[in-house]
Write a protein that binds this DNA or RNA. Sequence first.
DNA 1: AGTAAACATCGACAGACGTCAATATCTAGA
DNA 2: TCTAGATATTGACGTCTGTCGATGTTTACT
Lengths: 128, 128
Amino acid sequence: MSTAIETTPGTPDQVGALPAAVACCAPLARTPLSAKDAQGLAVVLKAIADPARLRLLSLVAARENGEACVCDLTEPVGLSQPTVSHHLRTLADAGLLRREKRGVWAYYSLVPGALDEIARVLTTAGRP
Amino acid sequence: MSTAIETTPGTPDQVGALPAAVACCAPLARTPLSAKDAQGLAVVLKAIADPARLRLLSLVAARENGEACVCDLTEPVGLSQPTVSHHLRTLADAGLLRREKRGVWAYYSLVPGALDEIARVLTTAGRP
DNA sequence: AGTAAACATCGACAGACGTCAATATCTAGA
DNA sequence: TCTAGATATTGACGTCTGTCGATGTTTACT
């Protein structure tokens, strides 16, 4: 009851929550992370630091059209529907997945560049 | 009492624990992760999915000589010495940091390529 | 030997997390 | 309007995790 954000039907809604900025800072090994940046990065990393969510991300990404509905994912990962739904929400809240509702189905797809942003921060540019 | 692994003094010891293979698999977005690969990747990602540990990694990496002792790190992150020591052990167990004891000091440094391996798996090669 | 310093380990505690069954909400079609 | 199906939310549960203070261990120096 009383969800803050009202989503007008037809609008591709971004799940009513914090997009938890994936982009943040210079590569880890370049300069010491500020406490704030570390906190933000950790939120996103926590989102992908789970076997189930990693597989969900992978399953979605590896699709032909780059999207999948919950019903497609529930069986491959071997978890209950509520659990899968919960994980997808976590990933969407972290800004890694986008959600689009079409009819009865909810289609999830990668947010372009999100995973690459994380990769960029982790890459040790010059340091051996 | 009776630690399994005996470290001969002088030998740069890898901390007596599981190196938790950082390298694992094809990029996430290429092919669906197996349950086993997802599990392994998650272990490593959990290790870096913490603000304190991210800052520790960053502090170590950004050093001139690429190494730092616990005493150098305890103050910048604002945590107790036991806690810092614990985090460093976590990172070393995950195969991200190497530990070398010299005299009374324990010097930690990045395992070359470890972070880049993670970055590689996360990078979406062809997928937009 | 005795002492001081650096680091690791232990034990404890609060809080966060992953999971499920039950239930609610929404949509399409009859 | 009623029904069936897809997804989201809720409540509960056991487990894992980050943190600390106290204590143990190792090394160097006097």
